[in-house]
Design a protein around this nucleic acid. Structure first.
Length: 980
DNA sequence: ACAGAAGCTTA
DNA sequence: GTAAGCTTCTGTT
C-alpha cells in the first residue's frame, strides 16, 4: 500500500445492529427469513465499491475490508468484568443475519476479518495506523462514536445510513472536542450501553467544557480541586479511578497482531456469478438485477447458492456468525413469486387475477398499523426497501386540488399490502390565527425529503404506483422530480371498466374491489366553510388517512393489473392511456396566455347589452322579474301572457328552452327574442369573460386547465377548471372570447383539427364505398350524401338539401332515431323516418353496421373501438325500451367517438417526440376532441405545421391501416379565433 | 351548504 | 339522436 491509495474499513458488527434497528423489517418471500440488515449491507457495499458518485465519500477505494467482532469476550472483560455485561441477547430475527452478512462479504469477494480477544474497533484502529504509516488515506464505514478518536488528517468516517462524511470538523461540531480528545471525553461521560462507568453527572457538554478548560483528563484529575461547582468537583474527585479505567476501556488498541497485511485488501472486481448466486438466494431481486447489469452476467445462468442459516434456538450469543454453525440448513433456490402464487406456473392470467383478488381481500386493512416517518434515516430505510422490492405505491397530500397551486403537505408510500408510511412535511399546529400557526416539530424539511425521494421516484427499476397519477406528476414536476416508470390504478380501472356503474376514484375502487371504505377527507379536515386544510390535520390521523391511500392503491394495483392481461387490454392501457399522462401533465403545466384586457372590455360590452335588454324586457312584462329564473319566465310567458305552444319539462315546469323561444320569436313575438338574446349575453359574461380571469395563475400568468383522462365513457378527454373545450365559436359574439386566447410575444398559436374524423371512421368501420370514395376524392361529404339520397347533382345543390343530409350524417354518428332527427330538422317524425329509410337504402352498409353493433353490445355488454378500447353498456338488455334504445344509440356512437378519441390520443402521445426530432420548439397546449392547439415561435410556424399534420394524419398507423384518409386543417395566428 | 334541474357552451 | 362542464335558480338539509 502506498501514498494515494484509499482504504475503506467497514465496521461490520456495528452496521448489523444499526441497520437492524433503522431499517424496516424485511423477510425473504419464500420462507420468511429476516434479511433487512443483510440487504442494507449488500446495498451499501455495492454502492461503495461501484461508483464514487454514489456516496458522499466521492472516492472509490483501492483497498477494502470488512471487520467483525469475534465474540463478546475481549481483553476489556479482564480489565473490567462489567464491560458490556448488561448487553441483552440480540433479537431473534437478527441472529441469522450475523452469519449471512459474513457470507455476503465473501460473496462480494472482500476480506472478512476478526481476531479473537479483540473488538472490531481495535482491528480498525490497527489497520488505520498501518495505512497511515504507509501514507494512505482511510475511511471508516461507521458512525460509532467509539471510532471517532481515530479521525484525523488521513482518516475520516462515513455514515452509510445518512450518506454523510465525518471528519474533524464534524466531530468537533457533534462533541465539542477534536478527535484526539474523544478518549478523554468518553472516559468522563462513560457509556451506559457498553457499561463504561465514566464520572456520574458528567455528560458530553460538561466533559467538553472541562477538557477545554484543563486540556486533558490527566490535568483535569490533577487539578480537580479548582472546579467551582461543588457537586461536579466532588463527583470527579470521588470517581477519578472510574474515569481512568473508563479511559482504558474506550481507548482502542492499534497494535492488534494481524495475519493479513494491507496489500491483501486490494479491491477486486466482483465475481459476477458468485455474487449473483448469493443475491438470488437472498431474493434481493432489484440488487441482483443491478449487479447483473454491471457485471454483464445473465442471472438466469446462475443458480442460487446454498447459504448457512443459524437458528435462534441454537445460537448462543450476538457474535455467532463464525466457525461451524451449530445447525445449518440449505435453502433451495427460491421461485420468483410468493408461495401463494408460486403454483401459478402454466395457469391463466384469469386465475392469477382471481388469486390476487382473494389475497387482497383476505388481509384486512388496519389504519392503526401505519408508520409516521419523522426523520431522514427512517425515510432512507423505507426507500431502500422500495428500491429492493422494485414496486412502491405512493400518494401526495397537498393544499389544493389544483396541482398548479398545491403546496406539498406530506407524502405516503406502501411497499406491500399493509406496509405503508406517511411522511409529514408541512403540518402546522394550533389554529394559526395568532402566530400564523406553529410548524409541527420533527418533520423532515421538504427540500431534504424530496432530495432523498428523488432517486427512488426517478429510478427506472422501481415501478411507482399511483391513483390518479397526473396530479402527482404535475406537483412533483414543479419540484424538479420526473416520476417514472409508473402505473395508474385509476387508468387501469378505466381501461377495464369504462361504462360500468361507479367511477374510477379511489374510494369507489376500494369499495368495489377491496370491500373497504377508506377514511373520508371530510372526516379529518371538514368540508365547505368548516374545511381546515390538510396541514391542520393531526399527524396521527393524517398518517392513517394518507398511508391508507398508498396501501389501498397498492392493493388495487395487485388486483387490477393482472385483469388487464386476463381481458386482453394490456396494449390499450400501455399504448393509449398510460403514455398520455405525462403528455397531459406537460400541457396543463404550460397553460395558455389569456388577455385579461380583452375579456374585461368584452365583459363591459356584454353588461351594457344585457342591461339594455333587461330594461326592454321589464317594459314588455310590466314588472321587474328575474329573467334568469326559468320558473318565473314560464309563468309570465305562458301563464299571464298566454303565449301559444307552451310545453312542460319533466318536472312540470313550463319549458323556456332556446329552441321554443326561437320558434315563438319567428312567429313575431317580441319578448322571446329579447330573452334569448339576454341569455346569450349573460351566459358569455358569467361563464367566460367574468370567470376566465379568475383562472389566470398568479405566477405563470397563464390559464392552466385540468384534463380528466377517465371521466368519459368513450375515451374522450374532458377539461375543467376552467373547461377550455367549450369556448364559444359558433356565434360572432362568442367568437370574440377566442380572441383573448393569445400567443406570447414573438409566438403564434397553431390550431390543427381533424376534418370530419368521426364520419371518416364510420366510412372505414362500416365499409361504405360511396363515403370512402368521397373522402378519397376530397369531396364535400354532406353534398355527396344529399346527392345519393335525393338524386340531386352536387353542382348547384340547394343549401337546404345539403343541410338535411348533414343532419342525417350527424344523426348516424349519434345513433339515429326518427324522433331526434325530426327535432333537429323541425320536421314531422314520419318525414324523418322516411329520410332514414331512404338513407339505409342508399347505404345498406350503415344499417348493417348499426345492427351488428347492437347485436354485439347485446351479446357482450360492451363495444370496442378499432384499437380495442372497451366501452360497457350494462343496461343494453334492459326491459325498458327507452333505456334499451338509449344504450343502443350510445353504443353505436361510442365505437365512432371512441375510435376518433383513440386516434387523437395516439397523435398526442407521439407529438412531442416528433417535434423534438424535427428540432422544433412548438409546444402542445390544448386538446378539443378533434383539435390540437400549439404555441410556437413565429420563425418555426411554417416548419411546424407539416410535422403536426403528418403526426395527426398518420396517427392510426401502424396499428390500423385505415381505408379512408385522415385530413387535418392547420393554421397559425396571433389568437385562437383567427387560428381556428 | 348541497343537490338537482334547466339552460347553454363545445365536439 | 352521442359525449362533456359551468352557471343560475330552486328547494331541501
Amino acid at each position: 500500500m502506498k501514498k494515494g491509495d484509499h482504504l475503506f474499513l467497514v465496521d461490520g458488527s456495528g452496521y448489523i445492529f444499526r441497520a437492524y434497528h433503522a431499517l424496516p423489517p424485511l423477510t425473504r418471500k419464500s420462507d420468511g427469513l429476516p434479511t433487512s440488515a443483510v440487504l442494507g449491507f449488500c446495498n451499501m457495499v455495492w454502492k461503495l465499491t461501484q461508483d464514487a458518485r454514489n456516496t458522499d465519500v466521492g472516492i472509490v477505494p483501492t483497498h477494502f475490508a470488512v471487520i467483525f467482532d469475534y465474540s463478546s469476550k475481549t481483553f476489556r472483560s479482564d480489565l473490567y468484568p462489567e464491560y458490556k455485561a448488561n448487553r441483552s441477547a440480540p433479537p431473534e430475527d437478527l441472529i441469522p443475519q450475523f452469519g449471512l452478512i459474513r457470507q455476503a462479504t465473501r460473496a462480494f469477494n472482500l476480506p472478512c476479518l476478526e481476531t479473537e480477544g479483540y473488538e472490531a474497533d481495535d482491528l480498525i484502529a490497527t489497520y488505520c495506523r498501518l495505512a497511515c504509516e504507509a501514507g494512505a488515506d482511510t475511511t471508516i464505514i461507521s458512525s460509532d462514536k467509539d471510532l471517532m478518536q481515530l479521525v484525523g488528517p488521513t482518516v475520516a468516517m462515513y455514515d452509510p445510513m445518512k450518506d454523510r462524511q465525518i471528519g474533524v470538523p464534524e466531530v468537533i461540531e457533534k462533541w465539542g472536542v477534536p478527535p484526539e480528545k474523544m478518549i478523554d471525553l468518553q472516559a468522563l461521560t462513560g457509556d451506559s450501553v457498553d457499561n463504561v462507568p465514566g464520572v456520574p453527572g458528567i455528560g458530553p457538554k460538561t466533559a467538553a467544557q472541562l477538557l477545554e478548560q484543563f486540556g486533558d483528563l490527566d490535568a483535569l484529575l490533577a487539578r480537580a480541586g479548582e472546579i467551582k461547582q461543588d457537586k461536579r468537583r466532588e463527583s470527579i474527585i470521588a470517581n477519578a479511578d472510574k474515569a481512568r479505567i473508563s479511559r482504558e476501556l474506550v481507548t482502542l488498541k492499534n497494535d492488534v497482531p494481524v495475519s493479513e497485511g494491507l496489500d491483501q485488501f486490494v479491491l477486486q472486481a466482483p465475481d459476477g456469478p458468485r455474487l449473483i448466486g448469493f443475491l438470488k438466494t437472498m431474493e434481493f431481486t432489484s440488487l441482483t438485477r443491478r449487479v447483473a447489469e454491471a457485471t454483464g452476467t445473465d442471472p438466469g445462468d446462475v443458480a442460487a447458492t446454498a447459504v448457512t442459516i443459524e437458528r435462534a434456538d441454537t445460537a448462543h450469543g450476538p457474535d455467532m456468525g463464525f466457525g461451524a454453525p451449530a445447525a445449518a440448513e440449505n435453502i433451495p433456490a427460491p421461485s420468483d413469486e410468493a408461495p401463494a402464487e408460486a403454483a401459478k406456473q402454466g395457469d391463466t392470467p384469469s386465475l392469477l387475477s382471481a388469486l390476487r383478488l382473494e389475497a387482497a381481500t383476505a388481509r384486512k386493512i388496519d389504519t392503526g398499523a401505519y408508520v409516521s416517518i419523522r426523520d431522514a434515516a427512517t425515510l432512507r430505510a423505507w426507500i431502500a426497501e422500495a428500491m429492493e422490492t422494485g414496486i412502491v405505491a405512493f400518494d401526495i397530500e397537498a393544499s389544493s386540488p389544483d396541482p398548479m397551486q398545491a403546496e406539498l403537505i406530506g407524502l405516503s408510500m406502501a411497499t406491500a399490502p399493509g406496509r405503508a408510511a406517511y411522511v409529514p412535511l408541512a403540518h402546522k399546529s394550533g389554529n394559526g390565527d395568532l402566530l400564523g400557526g406553529g410548524v409541527v416539530e420533527n418533520q423532515i424539511p421538504i427540500r431534504e425529503a424530496l432530495g432523498i425521494l428523488k432517486p427512488l421516484l426517478e429510478d427506472k427499476s422501481v415501478l411507482k404506483i399511483v391513483q390518479e397519477l397526473k396530479y402527482d406528476l404535475v406537483v412533483m414536476s414543479r419540484h424538479g422530480i420526473d416520476v417514472a416508470p409508473f402505473d395508474d390504478t385509476m387508468l387501469i380501472s378505466y381501461v377495464l371498466d369504462a361504462g360500468t356503474s361507479g367511477g374510477h376514484g379511489m374510494a369507489a375502487l376500494s369499495e368495489k374491489w377491496l370491500g373497504h371504505s377508506p377514511i373520508a377527507l371530510k372526516d379529518l379536515a371538514g368540508s365547505g366553510r368548516s374545511f381546515v386544510g390538510f396541514d391542520q390535520v393531526d399527524i396521527d390521523k393524517a398518517t392513517a388517512y394518507a398511508a391508507e391511500h398508498a396501501d389501498v392503491t397498492l392493493r388495487l394495483w395487485r388486483v387490477l393489473k393482472p385483469r388487464l392481461a386476463a381481458k386482453g387490454l394490456v396494449s390499450v392501457y400501455e399504448r393509449l392511456e398510460r403514455p398520455l399522462v405525462p403528455v397531459l401533465a406537460r400541457m396543463e403545466q404550460r397553460g395558455i396566455s389569456v388577455d385579461r384586457q380583452i375579456l374585461s372590455r368584452l365583459s363591459g360590452e356584454l353588461a351594457q347589452g344585457a342591461a339594455r335588454l333587461e330594461d326592454e324586457i321589464y317594459q314588455l312584462v310590466g314588472e321587474r322579474i328575474n329573467i334568469g329564473s326559468p320558473k318565473q319566465l314560464g309563468d309570465i310567458l305562458f301563464g299571464r301572457m298566454g303565449l301559444p305552444g307552451g310545453s312542460k319539462t319533466k318536472t312540470g315546469q313550463w319549458s323556456t328552452s332556446a329552441q321554443l323561444l326561437e320558434d315563438l320569436a319567428a312567429e313575431g313575438h317580441e319578448l322571446p327574442r329579447k330573452i334569448v338574446d339576454w341569455r346569450q349575453l349573460t351566459k358569455l359574461k358569467s361563464t367566460y369573460t367574468d370567470a376566465l380571469p379568475g383562472f389566470v395563475h398568479p405566477d405563470t400568468k397563464r390559464v392552466h386547465t385540468s384534463y380528466a383522462l377517465a371521466a368519459t365513457t368513450t375515451g374522450r378527454l374532458s377539461s375543467s377548471d376552467p373547461n377550455l373545450q367549450n369556448i364559444p365559436v359558433r356565434t360572432v359574439e362568442g367568437r370574440k372570447i377566442r380572441t383573448a386566447f393569445i400567443a406570447d410575444k414573438g409566438n403564434k398559436l397553431v390550431s390543427a383539427d381533424y376534418s370530419q374524423i368521426e364520419l371518416r371512421v364510420l366510412a372505414h368501420v362500416a365499409e361504405i364505398p360511396q363515403l370512402k370514395q368521397a373522402f378519397a376524392d376530397g369531396a364535400d361529404i354532406h353534398a355527396i350524401t344529399a346527392s345519393e339520397m335525393f338524386n340531386v347533382p352536387v353542382e348547384g345543390m340547394p343549401a337546404e338539401i345539403r343541410r338535411r343530409a348533414k343532419a342525417i350524417n350527424f344523426g348516424i354518428i349519434y345513433g339515429i332515431s326518427a324522433f331526434g332527427l325530426a327535432n333537429q330538422l323541425s320536421i314531422p317524425r314520419e318525414e324523418a323516418g322516411a329520410y332514414i329509410k331512404k338513407y339505409f337504402e342508399r347505404f345498406p352498409g350503415i344499417r348493417d353496421y348499426i345492427d351488428a353493433t347492437k347485436a354485439y353490445a347485446r351479446e357482450y355488454g360492451y363495444v370496442e373501438t378499432i384499437f380495442g378500447r372497451r366501452i360497457h353498456y350494462p343496461e343494453i338488455r334492459s326491459s325498458n325500451p327507452s333505456v334499451r334504445a338509449f344504450n343502443e344509440r350510445a353504443s353505436i356512437n361510442a365505437r365512432l367517438q371512441g375510435t376518433a378519441a383513440d386516434i387523437i390520443r395516439r397523435a398526442m402521445i407521439r407529438m412531442d417526440d416528433a417535434l423534438e426530432k424535427a428540432k422544433l420548439s412548438a409546444r402542445m397546449l390544448l386538446q378539443v376532441h378533434d383539435e390540437l392547439v400549439f404555441e410556437t415561435v413565429e420563425a418555426e410556424v411554417e416548419a411546424t405545421i407539416p410535422v403536426v399534420r403528418h403526426v395527426m394524419e398518420n396517427a392510426a398507423m401502424p396499428a390500423v391501416s385505415m381505408s379512408v384518409p385522415l385530413h387535418v386543417d392547420a393554421r397559425a395566428a396571433d389568437n385562437w379565433e383567427e387560428a381556428h
